[in-house]
Design a protein around this nucleic acid. Structure first.
Length: 571
RNA sequence: CGGGGUGUAGCUCAGCAUGGUUAGAGUACUUGGUUUGGGACCAAGGGGCCGAAGGUUCGAAUCCUUUCACCCCGACCA
């Protein structure tokens, strides 16, 4: 491609609303153009990058025997009613009616469509397992799209669905997909972690997220310093607290006068103890489909409630804050709520408090706390669950040696052991060896293709622009003729361009009548892995190869530059 | 969906409190010239229904009302 003819509208200034490097540079370098909130046009460079990512995905999917399909973007609303998700998804589903007044939904994910396609066509265990996938535009009418390609309303996603006769086989496929996803991200040159995740409302027996590590990530993940363990903070577990603080002095169980001591900080200060030995109460209101209920969550004073875990522990649809008035109305005293009276509201006690001793907790009476409480007395009556958010420094639940630390990640993939949720809802069954009808056991696997474009730049950029890796670059080599009016430079540049093209190298020839600095800045902004500078050195028989990732310029004899480039590209 | 903000040239923005001929700058674009190793310089140009609709006024980018869009914080996010 000749740069003079290429549609690559680069700009010196970033759009005023871009904050993330990926958004800024993809806009400035002419990859994307925003058309409305969360909607982007892909210009030629972005289209090429997307195609490269898709090719890598296709290769790795083929390697595990998955077959590519393409489902209709417009999906009939009846399918969504059948699975019950038309309500669950709510306003994120963009609905509309056709000329016959039939209701349709733009596909945000395709479980229903895929099950619908397979049901009554795959009817025997002999046809299983089956793994189908597509790479397709999705639409979710997000309440607040942001960060460029990172969180759009319309985006490209690879979504795969596998069908199995039993859980064991589904689990095997799940592992195979995890391995394939790992290879994809490695080939894209990304630094990532595969982490345990919350399965959320979609259910199933487990899920993992693929997190590209980047400060701008919207998810917090806990990773172990010693082993491979990593988990989304929503699902992270721990084996124990890093260091057990100094216990309080021995004392008898007693009710203690603690005037106006309401917060954990005040309580710890009042008794001169570590918050570890206090019981914190977090009161919330759990929302159910047709009811709501105040629930008291008890944790150690040093821990915080993890809301996703709390939702899972209560099976609530949502959890909201509760006012002091509402608490007083049911006889609770905010600031002095304790776990020993189980009758005033539903209690959920964190597992870490099961055996706790020497604790200080509220006495459910204004200005009084109990001291030296042995929590194990509640063992037989209380409901326990893991509801605490892990802290940095907690001990890894897997190797039990390493310490957990937090890092930010961009969720680029999420794989689910889905089970029979959709096959049951949509009555998709097969006959097993005994002629008995069973619902398919399913897995579902997503990977955000357009989000990957942004994630790559989040990890690979500097102050001058994008730094594409060889596997993702829209063009591998940029041949830059420094002074287009110099006949020698010009003809050498043209010849090298032709030579590289003949060798099937994706090459750009910067043949514009611009100054050296302008063209260099432009090349850096776009992020070609290699730029051949055909300039003043040519008079001495030399050109330079500028490597974007290292910013190094290497002088090479003009006769050798082609071979040298081919060697660098092979590496 | 709550709270806040912004809409003026392709892009970044000034002008608006206190209405007054033809609406500005930088950048980008076109033409000519000089320059040619890190986003050059000089000159001449083209480009605007001042987000939209109503209103007030002799006169509205500017004041009032309505509306739409976009952004930010939060809630939400299989």
């Amino acid at each position: 491609m000749r740069r003079s003819q290429a549609f690559i509208p680069t700009t010196k200034e970033a759009p005023n609303d871009a904050t993330l490097p990926s958004h800024i540079f993809l806009s400035r370098a002419g990859f994307i153009q925003q058309v409305a909130a969360g909607l982007y046009n892909y210009l030629p460079l972005a289209k090429k990058v997307i195609r490269k990512i898709e090719n890598i995905i296709n290769e790795e999917m083929a390697a595990i025997g998955a077959q590519e399909v393409e489902l209709s973007f417009v999906t009939p609303a009846e399918l969504w009613a059948e699975s019950g998700r038309i309500e669950k998804f709510g306003k994120e589903l963009l609905r509309f009616r056709d000329r016959k007044e039939n209701l349709f939904v733009l596909g945000p994910t395709h479980e229903e469509m895929m099950v619908n396609m397979v049901r009554n066509r795959v009817t025997s265990y002999k046809q299983l397992p089956l793994h189908l996938y597509q790479i397709k535009t999705k639409f979710r009418d997000e309440a607040r799209p942001r960060f460029g390609l990172m969180r759009g309303r319309e985006f490209i996603m690879k979504d795969g669905y596998s069908f199995h006769a039993d859980y064991e086989d589904m689990s095997r496929e799940f592992d195979a997909v995890e391995a394939a996803y790992k290879r994809i991200l490695e080939r894209l040159g990304l630094e990532f972690r595969i982490v345990e995740a919350d399965s959320g409302a979609i259910g199933g027996s487990g899920s993992k997220e693929l997190m590209v590590l980047a400060d701008s990530g919207e998810d917090t993940i806990a990773v172990c310093s010693e082993c491979e363990y990593g988990a989304n903070i929503e699902a992270a577990k721990r084996s124990a607290r890093g260091e057990i603080p100094q216990p309080p002095e021995e004392a008898d169980f007693a009710k203690f006068f603690t005037p106006n001591v309401k917060t954990i900080e005040e309580l710890a200060e009042f008794f001169k103890i570590d918050p570890y030995y206090t019981v914190k109460c977090v009161a919330k209101k759990c929302i159910y489909e047709d009811a709501e209920e105040i629930v008291l969550f008890f944790l150690r004073g040093c821990d915080n409630l993890q809301e996703v875990k709390a939702i899972n522990a209560t099976d609530a649809l949502d959890i909201v804050d509760v006012s002091e008035e509402e608490l007083k109305a049911i006889g609770l005293v905010p600031g002095f709520i304790g776990p020993l009276d189980q009758d005033k509201a539903k209690h959920v006690i964190d597992e870490d408090l099961k055996e706790a001793t020497m604790m200080v907790c509220g006495a459910n009476e204004k200005d009084y706390h109990f001291v030296n409480v042995d929590m194990s007395i509640l063992k037989d009556v209380a409901y326990y669950a893991d509801i605490a958010e892990v802290n940095e420094g907690d001990i890894c639940p897997v190797c039990k040696k390493g310490k957990l630390s937090f890092t930010k990640g961009i969720e680029v993939g999420h794989i689910f052991k889905l089970g029979t949720t959709y096959s049951e809802a949509l009555k998709a069954e097969f006959l097993d060896e005994n002629g008995k009808a069973k619902p398919f056991v399913m897995g579902t696997y997503g990977m955000g293709v357009s989000r990957l474009v942004a994630a790559i730049i989040e990890q690979h950029h500097d102050e001058n622009g994008c730094i594409w890796t060889k596997s993702t670059a829209p063009f591998l080599v940029n041949v830059m003729v420094s002074n287009i009016k110099d006949e020698e430079q010009n003809s050498f540049g043209e010849a090298l361009y032709k030579q590289l093209q003949d060798a099937k190298v994706e090459v750009m020839l910067d043949d514009r009548k611009e100054r050296f600095g302008f063209k260099m800045k432009d090349a850096e902004l776009i992020g070609f892995p290699y730029t051949v500078i055909v300039g003043k050195e040519l008079a001495n028989g030399n050109v330079q190869i500028y490597e974007r990732a290292t910013s190094e310029k290497t002088t090479v004899a003009k006769e050798e530059v082609f071979d040298k480039l081919m060697e660098m590209l092979r590496k």
